[in-house]
Simulated scan of single mutants.
Amino acid sequence: MQWLGARQVVISENIANADTPDYKSKDVGAFDAMMEGNERSNGLRVTKPNHIQGAPKSNIGIEADTGPWEQSLDGNTVSLEQQTIKAAEVSEGYKLAASLYRKGHDLLTLAVTGIR
Rank of each mutant, 00 (worst) to 15 (best):
N38G: 03
G29P: 07
A88P: 05
A6E: 15
G37T: 06
M1L: 15
F31M: 02
V90I: 06
N59C: 04
R45L: 03
S25V: 01
E63H: 08
S25W: 00
K26R: 15
G5K: 06
N14I: 08
M1T: 13
N50K: 07
T66Q: 15
N59V: 02
N38W: 05
M1F: 10
R7N: 03
L4T: 13
V9L: 14
A30N: 14
Y23V: 11
I60E: 08
F31D: 04
P21C: 02
A16R: 05
G61I: 14
G37V: 04
D19G: 01
S41I: 11
S91N: 13
K24H: 06
S72L: 06
E63F: 11
A55W: 09
R45K: 04
D65H: 10
T77E: 07
V78A: 03
S12D: 12
Q82K: 15
M34S: 02
N42C: 05
N38A: 14
D27L: 09
L73E: 04
D22K: 13
K26Q: 15
R7D: 10
R40A: 09
S91Y: 08
N50D: 02
D65R: 14
A6C: 09
L4K: 08
V9C: 06
I11K: 01
E36W: 05
A30V: 12
A88S: 09
I15T: 01
Q82G: 06
N59K: 01
A88Q: 13
V78G: 00
P56F: 13
G75P: 00
T47W: 06
M34A: 04
S12Q: 00
K48G: 07
L73D: 01
I85L: 05
L44A: 00
G37Q: 02
L80E: 01
N42H: 04
S12R: 09
W69E: 03
Q53R: 10
P21A: 08
W69A: 09
G43F: 07
M35W: 01
Y23A: 08
I52F: 11
T20K: 03
K48L: 13
Q71I: 02
Q8H: 13
A55K: 15
Y23R: 10
V46Q: 15
D32E: 10
G61E: 15
I85W: 03
F31G: 00
T77C: 06
E81T: 00
I11Q: 06
L44N: 05
S72F: 06
T77W: 00
T66A: 15
G29T: 12
L4R: 09
L80C: 02
E39W: 01
H51A: 10
K48N: 11
I52Q: 12
T84V: 13
W69K: 12
T47Q: 12
S41W: 01
E13G: 11
